[in-house]
Computed example of a mutant assay.
Amino acid sequence: MNMQASLPGKVKIVEVGPRDGLQNEKESVSAAVKTELVDRLSRAGFANIEAASFVSPKWVPQMATSAEVMAAITRRAGTVYSALTPNMQGFEAALASRADEVVIFGSASEAFSQRNINCSIAESIARFESVAKAAKQNRLRLRGSISCAFGCPYQGEVPLDAVADVVGRMRDLGCDEIDIADTIGVATARQTQAVMLRAAREFRLESISGHFHDTYGQALANIYASLEVGVSIFHSSVSGLGGCPYAKGATGNVATEDVLYLMHGLGIETGINLDLVVDAGQFISAHLGRKGSSRAGNALEAKRAG
């Protein structure tokens, strides 16, 4: 039986290292290094790079240079450069920086929402109405990101209906794409399929993306499980940048090099040059003074050095 026939022939990989990855790093990274990282990733051929976050520098000091980075990067035609925008102030900054897409976010876990932003899920998403409206008026892409869709550090299990509810709210705000995120990396393959299929009852499957963390080493298995049910957009972070703030010592985002190695092995088109991504991973890891977290990246680099 040929299983490959049931998998998507092409996927979009959203590179989140410059934003989601670096914001969780303890070491401060200069605007020049961030700019070089984004430029290297652009040259590798990504269709979407999460490059900036316009949040208060008091809360996320790593992202304080976002405007500087957005002004300095060499933009590649065909690449969407995204920015996280928590409010209208953030939206105005993203607009001024010529972001192509703004990202709003909410949690599928009521406990997580209350603990992190002191309000309910419904209230948190209602706060984005003005941002969503402004994005549409300015013809920017709008992406919604749903954290803790597979599990929560405070409440544990997250019901499927809770995920579906937030997907519906994000859809009603006019999101072009919706991310289903495993923030603490606890998801397993069957659970992943159940969540993705439930989300697809509220929003078109081709615009749903999987954002998996590798805390328990399940990210690639969950990505494959997502492919099996037709998901074709995935988030990953070059060199596995970014820890998981809710699990001590745990790895964060799944490494882009590992995801690309999987996709290319399956014969799935990505449009991305893996060698250039390995170079970008080695570049940023050297600046952080440590070995990268990507197994495929490190193996390919060792093979080249051999």
Rank of each mutant, 00 (worst) to 15 (best):
M3H: 11
Q4A: 14
A5F: 02
S6M: 10
L7E: 09
K10V: 01
I13K: 08
I13N: 10
I13F: 13
G21K: 10
L22N: 03
A32Y: 00
E36W: 03
L37R: 10
L37K: 12
L41I: 10
R43N: 08
R43P: 00
I49F: 02
A52C: 02
A52N: 07
F54E: 10
V55E: 07
K58R: 15
P61Y: 02
P61G: 06
T65K: 11
A67L: 03
A72F: 04
A77S: 09
G78T: 11
L84Y: 13
G90R: 03
E92R: 08
V103S: 10
S109A: 05
S120M: 06
I121W: 07
E123I: 03
A126Q: 13
E129S: 15
E129T: 13
K133P: 00
K133F: 01
A134N: 03
A135R: 11
Q137N: 13
N138Q: 13
N138V: 00
R141W: 11
G144P: 08
S145A: 14
Y154S: 05
Q155L: 00
V158H: 02
L160Y: 13
L160F: 14
D161Q: 15
A162T: 07
V166Q: 15
M170F: 14
R171G: 01
L173I: 12
C175N: 10
C175L: 08
C175A: 11
I178E: 12
D179P: 00
I180S: 06
I180M: 08
A181C: 12
A181Q: 08
D182N: 05
T183Y: 01
I184Q: 06
Q193N: 07
Q193D: 10
M196Q: 08
E202P: 02
E202A: 13
Y216S: 06
A225C: 03
E228G: 00
S232G: 04
S239F: 01
G242C: 04
A247M: 02
G249D: 03
A250P: 06
T256A: 12
V259P: 03
Y261R: 09
M263K: 06
M263P: 12
G265T: 06
G271E: 09
I272M: 05
S285G: 06
L288P: 04
G289I: 07
N298K: 01
A302D: 13
G306Y: 02
G306N: 07
